[in-house]
């Protein structure tokens, strides 16, 4: 995905998402990073819950994938950007997949729509047969 020119990546770390315990490790890292950057407890909770949804989506639909945790800066704002990518079957109908309650797996179908609701910015690209990438972003309020 093209990185908008105004966003500067300060740090970047990649985590493999292969099994359930990786989800817990990832959300723990996100929470630690968010707290260091001064994000409010509520926003920390929203971001790590969104991350948990998306990471579990990888396990359910893609089988395995990775998550990239980035600290970013844009003008005077700082924030956290997360990129989730898998090499799963991809999503044929993105619009339908974004509907709350739509589910092909065993979850409650709130993964994608829920994550979008909880993040400040949400971006999804998917190619059938190649995989899916979801990017979410949360700014630290001053």
């Amino acid at each position: 995905m093209p990185i908008p020119a105004t966003i500067e990546v300060l740090t970047s770390e990649t985590f493999a998402i292969l099994e359930g315990s990786h989800v817990i490790q990832l959300t723990g890292q996100i929470r630690q990073q968010a707290s260091q950057m001064g994000m409010s407890l509520l926003d920390q909770t929203k971001l790590s819950t969104a991350a948990s949804e998306l990471a579990r989506n990888i396990l359910v639909h893609g089988g395995e994938g990775k998550a990239q945790l980035e600290c970013i800066r844009s003008n005077s704002k700082i924030g956290i950007r997360l990129l989730f990518s898998d090499r799963g079957p991809g999503i044929a109908n993105v619009e339908q997949a974004m509907q709350p309650g739509f589910s092909t797996g065993i979850g409650m179908g709130l993964g994608l729509s829920g994550a979008k609701q909880l993040a400040d910015e949400f971006h999804l690209t998917s190619v059938v047969g190649e995989g899916t990438t979801v990017t979410i972003l949360k700014w630290v309020n001053d």
Binding site: L41, L42, Q44, T45, K46, L110, S113, G114, Q117, L118
Partner: peptide
């Protein structure tokens, strides 16, 4: 349930 968790669940639609 913690307040932040409750608000997040509501935003999530759960």
């Amino acid at each position: 349930m913690q307040p932040a968790v409750a608000i997040t669940l509501v935003e999530l639609g759960l």
